[in-house]
Design a protein around this nucleic acid. Sequence first.
DNA 1: CCCTTGATGTGATAAATGTCACGCGCAATT
DNA 2: AATTGCGCGTGACATTTATCACATCAAGGG
Lengths: 193, 193
Amino acid sequence: MFEKFAVYLKEKASLTDEQIEEVRAVTINKRLRKRQYLLQEGDVCHHNCFLAKGCLRLYRVGEDGVEHILRFAVENWWISDQESYNNGIPSKNNIDALEDSELLLIEKNDFNHIVHNFPNFRTFKDALKARSFDVSQNRIMSNISDTAEEKYKNFIKSYPDISNRVPLHMIASFLGVSRETLSRIRNQFTKTH
Amino acid sequence: MFEKFAVYLKEKASLTDEQIEEVRAVTINKRLRKRQYLLQEGDVCHHNCFLAKGCLRLYRVGEDGVEHILRFAVENWWISDQESYNNGIPSKNNIDALEDSELLLIEKNDFNHIVHNFPNFRTFKDALKARSFDVSQNRIMSNISDTAEEKYKNFIKSYPDISNRVPLHMIASFLGVSRETLSRIRNQFTKTH
DNA sequence: CCCTTGATGTGATAAATGTCACGCGCAATT
DNA sequence: AATTGCGCGTGACATTTATCACATCAAGGG
């Protein structure tokens, strides 16, 4: 289970074999079954989580009880609740598994230690964060300027792997439109194209 | 003009007087008149810009010619086009002044130099980035889950300083609703409260 | 001091989207 | 084999929001 992570660290973050062994020493293996929580609202997020296999979602439950999905995660993605993790405060969000999943967790102190000691990992991590910020900005732009159809097209173009893996109503939740509307959009869309 | 920046660096980023002098040596003063561009679509963003005075907006022009405001900036905020800056690619966005403004620019190489040599500044910068990421995430959540009225209330609560400083139609653009709708929402809102 | 420009408000109407209700089909469970 | 839950589609209708058109008002430039 650690193997996938090792490959990732070597190829993406350019870690040496020795560094990878150090990472291994502080890595926690975790399996999640479908529907199982990784993090629940109110918990403090203490780990950086690397997803070796499976699919997760991070979502918030509104006051009306409706779930709003902030993001998905699939193989080779990291996931955590940044706001909770960084500030040590209770999370407003939930993370749970959409499929049986395999994760590798690194506790905050251990993670800081790695970042501090491995400049190459730090550089990699910073680049990742920067990219994920860019993604956020582009998503906001899409949110405020695109029609529902454009948002959907955008999504399946950007995340083809995710879009045929998670149920449509969750994509609707992610995009901020009702499942009915998205269903209609998609059908009209496939009819005419 | 540099003085405000010096105070900021001392108080917020805990820089020493010597460090501040080093920053001063690489800082470029820039004044913008209302409506003047700091960055234009297609340009590459080469600077980190600290806003000592005034108000700016970062926006993108859609294919239909409509302007969509991604963010505002006021005193003591940083602004740049991250995606362009980090990747050295032409910007998709424009930045211009909503008021006569005073800026302090630091060129990318100089900025990296500072980050590299001043660990306290690096820590500060990382914390800033982390917070701005959190803000983005919360904004996305608002985008996909709030009604237009909630978005507006949210905005004036989060940015009271901005909301009585920029024209309403720009707030509408920022929120992703038409100016007419926002005008109506605000009037109903003030009537009943 | 006039004239333009920009910002806002508002009515009328169209378009988009949400909500509610229901049915169908599939897959997992028992 | 029957049952249950889930995902999806779809019709009918309500609500929200956008669009278009026009009026008003204030600020600023010539």
